[in-house]
Each structure stands twice: as structure tokens, then as C-alpha cells.
């Protein structure tokens, strides 16, 4: 599989996660996915396809995790798990 196709998959997965409101429910994973994807594109631009592929695979996994976490956050279980979420003090 080429680096380009993994980058495309990661991009698509991140878009889906964002659509599922992952910026709210899974900010950590979403940010990581975004940064890894950007770095993968940068590596691709420097023709370092092996590293680009590895980073894009990581981005894909983070995006998938963000997707799941967002789905869980939005579902009924969100109420229970949100009780355990730590929030900044006012």
C-alpha cells in the first residue's frame, strides 16, 4: 500500500471524526491525528515515503479512536463517563 493511500484514509477518518464532534469529545486523539497527518504530508513532500506511511498509519489509528470516543461520548454512555471527566476549575 502506498503512503498516499494511507494518508487519504487517515484524512477521511479524521473528517468523519470531526463530523462526529470529536473536537468536543476526543480532543486529545483528534489533535494527535491532525498533527500526525500534517507531519505525514510533510514527509511525503520530502519523498520520505516509509516514514510518511508510518505516521499516516498512526494518524489513522488516532482518528479512528477519536471517532469511537466521540460516538461513545454522544451516546447514552456519555452521561456516565462525563461524570468521570476532569474539567478545568472555574
Amino acid at each position: 500500500m502506498t503512503a498516499t493511500s494511507v494518508v487519504d484514509d487517515a484524512e477521511l477518518s479524521l473528517r468523519r471524526a470531526r463530523g462526529a464532534d470529536s473536537d468536543r469529545y476526543a480532543q486529545y486523539e483528534t489533535t494527535l491525528a491532525e498533527l500526525y497527518l500534517t507531519k505525514a504530508r510533510e514527509m511525503q513532500g520530502h519523498a520520505q515515503y516509509g516514514e510518511a506511511r508510518a505516521l499516516a498509519s498512526e494518524a489513522l489509528r488516532f482518528a479512528n479512536a477519536a471517532n469511537r470516543k466521540a460516538a461513545e461520548g454522544r451516546s447514552g454512555g456519555a452521561a456516565a463517563s462525563s461524570a468521570s471527566l476532569a474539567v478545568p476549575k472555574e
Binding site: 480532543q27 486529545y28 489533535t31 498533527l35
Partner: peptide, 16 residues
């Protein structure tokens, strides 16, 4: 517990 309290900052730090 930065993953919950400062998720964006932690992610930026770890990734970079």
C-alpha cells in the same frame, strides 16, 4: 491528568 485537563496541549507536546 493532563490528558483530561489539557488534552490539546498534551497532544501538541507529545506529537512534536
Amino acid at each position: 491528568n493532563a490528558e483530561a485537563c489539557a488534552p490539546r496541549e498534551l497532544a501538541v507536546a507529545e506529537a512534536n
